[in-house]
Design a binder for these strands. Structure first.
Length: 401
DNA sequence: GCGATCAGAT
DNA sequence: CACATCTGATCGC
C-alpha cells in the first residue's frame, strides 16, 4: 500500500506487516528463506505450502488469515504516537490453491487488493466471495480497487474453466493412441488435471516436486511419478516447447496441450498496435497452434467481461492496475472509469495506455563485454538453488528435453 | 563468498 | 505474445 506501512506481495524493507496473496513466483520476488522483515499474513493453504517453497523460512513469522473472517492489526502511525488499527478480510480469489484477495479497512477507508483472481460468476466459489464482499461493503464505498488487470482489454475473451476443461478432454479423447503432455506451473490447474483424471479414469504423471505439492494439497490417488502408469503427463511450462514436442515425437506419437488465456488475444491490425482498438477475435481460437500443439483457453485470470462484472458490482471510487510491467499496459480506468465514482472518466482519457515502470531503470547496454565465466561457480549456484527447492530430478524417465 | 537481481529463454 | 518459471551472469555488500 502506498502509505508504506503495509505491503501486499512486496517484500522490501519499510513495512510493518506483509501480505501474500498467493505463492506464484512473480508475487514472491524478494522473499527468501532468510527473509524476516515482519509478520507475513497469508491464507491457510499458502502457509501449508510455504515450507516447501522456502525451506528454512522462519515459520513463526507466518500469520494465517482465515477466509471470510475479519482480522485486525495494530500499526504505529508514522506521524504521531498513536497506533491505528487496520482490519482485513481475505476472500477466495479462485486463482491457484491458497490464492486470496484482501479487503482492508482503516483510516484510509476501504481498499481491496485482488491479487490474481478469476471471477467466474456461475461458480459456487465466486458466489461465496461475492456475498462476502457485498456484505462487507453494503453500507460503504470501496475507495480503492487494486485490480488484476492481466487481461484488462475487451480483446481478451475466453470461456469458463469448466468449458475449457471439456475441450481439453475432447482433444485427449480424440487422440486415443497418443501420449499427452500438458503445460503447467509449480502451482495451479490442479482442478483441471483432477477433472481429466476423473472423466478419463486415468492417472496423471507429474514431476516429483509437483507430486509433493499435490500431496500437501490433499490429492493422494490421482497423480503419479511413474510414466508407465499413464499416457497423460503434466510438465513444467518452461520446458514445454515446439522442440520438446518434436523430440518426444521422435520416440512416440505425442501431442502437447497449452492451457492459457494468452493465445486468445484478439489480433489488432499489424501497423496499428493501439491496444484499445476494436477487438478482433483470433480466428485460430480452438484450433491447432502447431503440428503437435493445441492451445486451449483455460485461464486462472479473469477475462475482460469478468473484470467488468467485478467492477460493476463493487463500484470503486478509484482503480489501479496491479500488473504494470506489460508492454501494452492499459490503465483500467480507460475501460472502467465510467463505472467508478466521480471524475474518473475524464481523467482516464488522459491516462490511457500509460506505461508504468518500476524503479530500476534499465540503462545497461547489452553486449559491451562478453566475459568468460568460471564454470565451477555457475554450477554451484545452480546446485544450491536446486537443493533449496528440494532435489531436482534428472529423470531419464520423462524424456523431457 | 554469498544472496539479490538482471537478462534471456521457453 | 510472455500467464510464470528456470538458468546463468552480474551486482553489491
Amino acid at each position: 500500500m502506498e502509505n508504506g506501512m503495509i505491503s501486499v506481495d512486496r517484500w522490501a524493507i519499510g513495512s510493518q506487516a506483509y501480505f501474500l496473496t498467493h505463492l506464484h513466483a512473480d508475487h514472491t520476488q524478494g522473499l527468501s528463506p532468510s527473509w524476516r522483515r515482519g509478520p507475513l499474513f497469508c491464507s491457510r493453504v499458502s502457509a501449508k505450502l510455504f515450507p516447501s517453497k522456502f525451506p528454512g523460512f522462519d515459520l513463526s513469522l507466518l500469520r494465517v488469515v482465515d477466509i471470510g473472517r475479519w482480522h485486525s492489526l495494530s500499526i504505529a502511525s508514522p506521524s504521531s504516537d498513536s497506533a491505528s488499527t487496520v482490519h482485513f478480510l481475505a476472500v477466495d480469489a479462485y486463482h491457484c490453491p491458497g490464492a486470496v484477495m484482501y479487503l482492508f479497512r482503516g483510516e484510509f477507508g476501504y481498499m481491496l487488493y485482488t491479487g490474481d483472481f478469476r471471477w467466474e460468476a456461475m461458480s459456487d466459489r465466486a458466489l461465496i466471495g461475492r456475498a462476502m464482499l457485498l456484505n462487507a461493503l453494503k453500507d460503504v464505498n470501496l475507495d480503492y480497487l487494486y485490480l488484476d488487470n492481466t487481461y484488462c482489454n475487451p480483446a481478451y475473451a475466453f470461456p469458463s474453466r469448466e468449458v475449457a476443461a471439456k475441450q481439453i478432454v475432447n482433444i485427449i479423447e480424440s487422440h486415443p493412441k497418443h501420449d499427452i503432455v500438458i503445460a503447467i506451473d509449480s502451482l495451479g490447474k490442479e482442478n483441471l488435471l483432477a477433472y481429466i483424471s476423473r472423466v478419463l479414469n486415468i492417472k496423471i504423471w507429474v514431476w516429483p516436486e509437483r507430486l509433493q505439492t499435490m500431496h500437501l494439497l490433499g490429492f493422494h490417488d490421482i497423480f503419479t511419478t511413474k510414466t508407465s502408469l499413464t499416457r497423460v503427463r503434466a510438465i513444467p511450462r518452461y520446458s514445454f516447447s515446439i522442440e520438446t514436442l518434436e523430440g518426444l515425437n521422435r520416440m512416440r506419437p505425442t501431442i502437447g496441450i497449452m492451457p492459457s488465456g494468452l493465445p486468445w488475444v484478439a489480433k489488432n491490425d499489424k501497423g496499428n498496435n493501439h491496444p484499445l482498438g476494436p477487438p478482433v477475435i483470433d480466428p485460430n481460437i480452438f484450433k491447432k497452434y502447431h503440428q503437435y500443439i493445441y492451445t486451449v483457453p483455460y485461464s486462472d485470470h479473469s477475462c475482460f467481461s469478468e473484470l467488468k462484472d467485478f467492477v460493476k458490482l463493487l463500484k470503486p471510487v478509484d482503480i489501479k492496475g496491479i500488473v504494470t510491467s506489460a508492454p501494452s499496459y492499459t490503465n483500467p480506468l480507460y475501460f472502467f472509469g465510467h463505472l467508478c465514482g466521480t471524475k474518473q472518466t475524464s481523467q482516464a482519457l488522459h491516462q490511457k495506455n500509460e506505461t508504468l515502470r518500476s524503479g530500476g531503470s534499465k540503462l545497461h547496454k547489452k553486449g559491451v563485454k562478453k566475459l568468460q565465466h568460471t564454470g565451477a561457480r555457475a554450477s554451484r549456484v545452480s546446485i544450491l538453488r536446486r537443493v533449496r527447492r528440494g532435489a531436482k530430478v534428472s529423470d531419464t524417465d520423462s524424456t523431457l528435453v
